[in-house]
């Protein structure tokens, strides 16, 4: 046949630079984790606490990125699962035990169950319906947290959560607590990262790019979306259990629309689909909120709103990764 059809070894050539490119992030990743692990040895307790908040929020943002960036499911109510995990972990710490894996597992299970209960309806809708439904779910869960006072403490929140215990020892010291949070955060991040790079993750990206085509290839896309929705809910629940370990308090604000928006902002700033980016975005959001929050007299949302507007106009490429198949537009080109 023609020359085009003969197999030429050129196809294998890019393997070399690939190996280099693949090796470098690994080194960087190990270095970042090491620096993060060593941080409390050099930082003041206050700064360590801020770093703890960043790790908690980064894991939450990563779980959202799995939905928004990898699968193209733009959730506006992801804090519902974060908060549900936090409330459950807090409740079990107060009423049952605060011994280490228990609040964590309870948080993960609660996030997963909450996502499983709400997810089946949401993933079967597309586009703007998904936005609306996740928003509605988030608000509903927040109102539930506000009104169900017996379990949640109502508007005051769930107070008096004891410190997490590791092998019987309560983690009171900010540094130890940070290491606990960091360890779980790194494991959670690694989990999401592995999923994103797996054959299954490739299918999720396929759904993001072109869902009808994936169906035509024989992928039951609704099942995939449901599974990733539950997984993201579960990781968010883990992040929630870390939140309560750090704050020792959960309030309805933790599962509010505002919290969802902060996470979405972290994802968008970092560039949707990039899990590292989501972590960096989370760091930016937490730092801005903590430093500006005080000077702005609690009007953080004002800044957040302006940043949203600016990001949408100025970083269209960052937001471009968020695109999911648009049936009406995709056809005309």
């Amino acid at each position: 046949m023609t020359a085009v059809q003969t197999r030429i070894p050129v196809a294998d050539a890019p393997a070399e630079p690939n190996r280099l490119r693949r090796g470098l992030p690994r080194i960087v990743a190990v270095a970042v984790v090491l620096v993060l692990a060593a941080a409390p040895l050099f930082l003041a307790p206050f700064a360590t606490t801020t770093l703890t908040r960043i790790v908690v929020f980064a894991l939450f943002a990563v779980s959202l990125d799995l939905l928004v960036g990898i699968t193209g499911l733009p959730s506006l109510g992801h804090a519902a699962y974060f908060g549900a995990g936090a409330y459950a972990a807090g409740w079990v710490s107060i009423n049952v035990t605060a011994e280490a894996p228990v609040p964590l597992l309870v948080g993960a299970a609660t996030g997963a169950v909450a996502a499983a209960l709400t997810g089946w309806i949401t993933v079967r809708t597309g586009g703007v319906f998904f936005l609306m439904l996740t928003l509605a779910i988030g608000e509903t869960v927040q109102q539930l947290a506000n009104t169900w006072e017996d379990a949640t403490g109502g508007a005051n929140g769930l107070t008096g959560v004891p410190s997490v215990r590791l092998a019987g020892e309560p983690l009171v010291n900010a540094g130890y607590l940070y290491w606990y949070v960091l360890a779980i955060g790194v494991v959670g991040f690694a989990l999401v990262w592995l999923v994103a790079r797996s054959p299954w993750g490739a299918a999720l990206r396929g759904i993001r790019d072109n869902e009808p085509r994936m169906r035509a290839l024989g992928y039951p896309t609704a099942v995939y979306k449901y599974a990733v929705f539950v997984l993201a809910g579960s990781v968010a629940g883990v992040a929630g259990s870390l939140l309560v370990a750090q704050q020792r308090l959960v309030t309805p604000a933790d599962l509010s629309f505002l919290t969802s928006s902060f996470a979405l902002l972290a994802v968008v700033i970092g560039g949707a689909g990039s899990l590292w980016g989501a972590c960096l975005g989370a760091a930016v959001v937490v730092l801005v909120r903590e430093t500006l929050g005080a000077s702005l007299d609690g009007h953080g949302p004002l800044v957040l709103g302006l940043v949203f507007v600016l990001v949408v106009y100025l970083l269209p490429r960052g937001a471009a990764g968020l695109r999911w198949p648009r049936r009406d537009k995709g056809r005309s080109t």
């Binding site: 592995l194 790079r197 054959p199 299918a203």
Partner: peptide
């Protein structure tokens, strides 16, 4: 991967 019987695992392989 969907049609050759390979398992679509949620971990890299």
């Amino acid at each position: 991967q969907r049609h050759d019987g390979s398992r679509i695992t949620p971990w890299p392989r």
